[in-house]
Simulated assay, not measured.
Amino acid sequence: MGTTAEQYLQQLDAGRRPNLPETTAGTLRLDVRDDGSTEHWYLTVSDQQVQVARSADDADLVVRADRWVFDQMVDGQLHPGAALLRNDLTLQGDMRLLMVLRRIFAGPSGARHPRDLGRAALAAQGRSSTDAREDRS
């Protein structure tokens, strides 16, 4: 297994995250259950930045799940929406912030945005048609 949720959150920098919508702001509390205890992670999202703290304060969205669920979400093996539908996690509060959580977590290693893949395919297609025209000349 790759990075755990705890490792990922501990090293999450407070720099700008361009994959977050500029207008998104709110707080999330992640309640990570493991062996009868619960760890609390508090994320503050504002101006495309994420601040991480250890706190059980009230938040706009509280996400509760077992440690393995958060670990799989961090690795990109489990989408938060799918985990919600399978009752692997529970929510309390502003559900719109759940998709922000998906953007905060890194996703699978080697993953690329679909638009980048489309642009690369179009560029390759453009090169192959240029090569075909040159061959006909």
Rank of each mutant, 00 (worst) to 15 (best):
M1Q: 08
T4A: 07
E6Q: 14
Q11D: 04
D13N: 14
A14G: 02
R16D: 07
R16V: 12
P18C: 09
N19C: 11
N19T: 10
P21V: 06
P21S: 15
E22S: 10
E22T: 04
T27V: 09
D31L: 11
V32N: 04
R33A: 14
D34A: 12
G36A: 05
Y42Q: 13
V45M: 13
S46P: 02
V50C: 05
Q51N: 06
A53G: 02
S55G: 05
D58S: 12
D60K: 01
D66M: 10
W68M: 08
W68I: 07
D71F: 03
G76I: 05
Q77C: 06
H79W: 04
H79M: 03
P80A: 01
A82G: 03
A83C: 07
L85N: 12
L85C: 07
R86A: 15
R86P: 04
N87T: 09
N87V: 06
D88W: 02
D88G: 00
T90H: 10
T90R: 10
M95D: 14
M95R: 15
L97T: 03
L97Q: 07
L98R: 04
L98Y: 08
M99N: 14
V100Y: 10
V100L: 13
F105L: 08
A106D: 14
A106S: 15
P108T: 11
P108Q: 15
P108H: 13
G110A: 12
G110S: 11
R112C: 12
R112D: 14
P114F: 13
D116H: 13
D116T: 10
D116L: 13
L117G: 10
R119Y: 14
A124S: 12
R127C: 02
S128K: 01
S128M: 06
S129P: 07
D131S: 08
A132W: 06
R133F: 09
R136H: 05
R136W: 03
S137P: 00
S137W: 11
